[in-house]
Design a protein around this nucleic acid. Structure first.
Length: 549
RNA sequence: GGCCCGUUGGUGAAGCGGUCAACACACAUGCCUUUCACGCAUGCAUUCAUGGGUUCAAAUCCCGUACGGGUCACCA
């Protein structure tokens, strides 16, 4: 029985050829140097920062080179699939502000001419390749059952042999086509295995974009290419999909490095052009025991991208952070080019570090700076957008009081050294709630009085100030001069220095006076510039608040 | 266990054979200041996992050891 006859028996309905498929999905018309890359997750858990790191770089390079970035869902493992997995992935990508040219848009919508982009929908395509492999002696059906495989592994372990399905241990490789046909006709389940031609004692060299030249023994394992349910494993899907979709660069975690010899053999057997590989370090965290380990999709829910979006880290700040762990010279570039868009950064594979530790305080610092550099309109729009998803109360206030909100957001913003107290969007409510009457009125007031706590004295000072001195039309200097006059009237030193030199002469200093006014109006002892706060609040609100004392 | 990758301060790291081992974050102290947030200044690895070798000279090149990570599935 010939291979062709066996292939016909196994795949009677496959009439297309690989050539047909290649014609259907022709080479992309892109300019020289354009990178085609993809994010290819499996919907089997949360999307964490490590996943997003590779997704981000995968999207960055095509964008920079005028290439194509697409999202492909690798759902070939139904057993571990998580419900809502695909939506979760898409939401995560969106929350980071990453856009893709082709791929899965939602559970039942896809875009792009090289699809389908969900592997479970590509069965017919894989079958064409499978049939070709049977015909051309590249692969064969294997009828070994789990228990048998486990047994030979056990034997190999016990005898200190290399573990796997290779050489004489690859039993089904030696079956005759007649025997194969017979078993198939009987309806026995089978997988399709690669008929490897590799030699473990020979070396394969390949150039990894990140690691440089890496040397491995050739693959000689007859690995499973297609599972008994007819669905391909990763290695085979990688071959077929990345060939047909014309991927030029495969970026993935370092945990894939040791399967490269398999991929090399596969591409070689089909005479396909091999994509370039870049194996990125894994993002690590320190766990409860104080040891480093890679972030886990299943355990580390705190590191989920959506969590960061929820507390309100700007997507741009997250991108900046990812780039600082992706390329070790990014920080230097950023400080030399503070105003350039991120896309101008000359990313370089040779500057990819190894296994970075997720550094929360670094993220905080980056985010703080990022928000401080936004102009008020941008911040306002971002905040409206964020709050529409995560804080409807704030959203209402922002939308209904646009000009007022802009003024609040602009406090100490448009200056050479802007304030840097907001780390995330949720901080804005946390630090500025007293600027909004709706929030202020529902909060129970806990006045943070400092050195002066005598309420009669406080009431007296506040009342005098607002009846006698305060004028909303004053400029900053005049305003502060008047505050000094108030201090003088109540025997507080106008200058801190004077008070320090001669404490017994005064009841306190201008500091105490400013604090009293600050706390009386906001309840907080620590706020941004008092002058601006009073100015924005307006005289009506000020009066309302004085009456609460 | 086999096979790979890696190891510079609390963290990310620069350095690629030749001055005191950049820089950023964090931390500490001080200055500035009406509070805070900024900003500024100073401090923070006698040493580059470790042992040996090559060299006039090594964090930088070579070998061994230890440690960390990854991978050896009909998971990706």
């Amino acid at each position: 029985m010939t291979n062709k006859e066996l292939a016909e028996l196994m795949y009677p309905n496959v009439t297309m050829t690989i050539k047909d498929l290649e014609e259907k999905f022709p080479k992309r018309a892109l300019k020289e140097g354009a990178i085609v890359s993809r994010y290819a997750p499996s919907p089997t858990g949360f999307v964490h920062m490590g996943n997003m790191l590779s997704c981000f770089i995968e999207s960055f390079l095509p964008k920079q080179t005028g290439g194509v970035f697409f999202l492909r869902i690798e759902d070939t493992d139904q057993k571990r699939e998580v419900k809502g997995g695909i939506e979760n992935i898409i939401n995560s990508i969106n929350s980071l502000g990453i856009e893709y040219d082709e791929g899965v848009v939602s559970g039942d919508e896809q875009k792009g001419a090289y699809g389908p982009y969900i592997q479970s929908q590509r069965r017919e395509i894989y079958d064409v390749f499978a049939k070709y492999m049977i015909e051309n002696d590249i692969a064969y059906p294997c009828f070994c059952r789990e228990e048998e495989l486990e047994e030979t592994r056990k034997f190999q372990r016990n005898n200190k042999l290399r573990i796997g399905y290779y050489a004489k241990y690859a039993r089904c490789r030696f079956l005759k086509n007649e025997e194969r046909a017979e078993k198939i006709k009987q309806g026995l389940p089978y997988t399709i295995r690669l008929k490897s031609t590799g030699n473990f004692n020979h070396k394969v060299k390949f150039k990894d974009l990140v690691k440089g030249e890496v040397v491995f023994p050739e693959n000689d394992q007859d690995i499973v290419l297609i599972k008994s349910d007819g669905i391909p494993v990763y290695h085979f899907a990688h071959l077929v999909d990345d060939h047909l979709m014309h991927t030029t660069h495969v970026l993935r975690g370092e945990d894939w490095l040791s399967s490269v010899p398999i991929h090399i053999e596969l591409f070689k057997r089909f005479n396909f052009e091999q994509p370039k590989y870049a194996h990125l370090g894994l993002v690590m965290i320190v766990d409860e025991n104080g040891t480093k380990r890679k972030i886990s999709k299943r355990k580390d829910q705190d590191f989920t991208v959506l969590n960061y979006a929820k507390v309100g880290f700007p997507s741009g700040a997250l991108q900046e952070y990812l780039m600082t762990i992706a390329n070790t010279n990014f920080e230097g570039w950023r400080s030399a080019n503070p105003d350039k868009p991120l896309i101008d950064f000359p990313f370089s594979f040779s500057k990819v570090g190894s296994n970075p530790l997720f550094d929360y305080s670094k993220l905080v610092n980056i985010s703080k700076n990022y928000i401080s550099k936004m102009d008020k309109e941008t911040l306002y729009n971002e905040l409206v957008n964020w709050s529409s998803k995560y804080d409807l109360e704030l959203n209402d206030i922002l939308v209904n009081n646009k000009d007022y909100s802009l003024a609040v957001l602009n406090i100490e913003r448009e200056k050479k050294k802007p304030r840097k107290d907001y780390v995330t969007y949720s901080d804005i409510k946390k630090y500025s709630w007293y600027m909004f009457n709706d929030l202020f009125n529902k909060e129970k007031k806990e006045y943070e009085w400092q050195s002066v706590t005598d309420l009669d004295e406080i009431r007296n000072i506040v009342k005098t100030y607002f009846t006698k001195y305060y004028d909303i039309g004053d400029d900053h200097d005049t305003w502060f001069d008047k505050l000094k006059l108030l201090a003088k009237e109540f025997s507080y030193a106008e200058e801190v220095k004077d008070y320090k030199e001669n404490p017994s002469k005064y009841k306190g200093s201008i500091t105490d006076i400013a604090t009293i006014i600050r706390v009386a109006i906001t309840t907080k002892s620590q706020t941004p510039d008092l002058y601006e706060i009073l100015h924005i609040l307006g005289i009506d609100t000020i009066n309302e608040r004085i009456n609460l004392l």
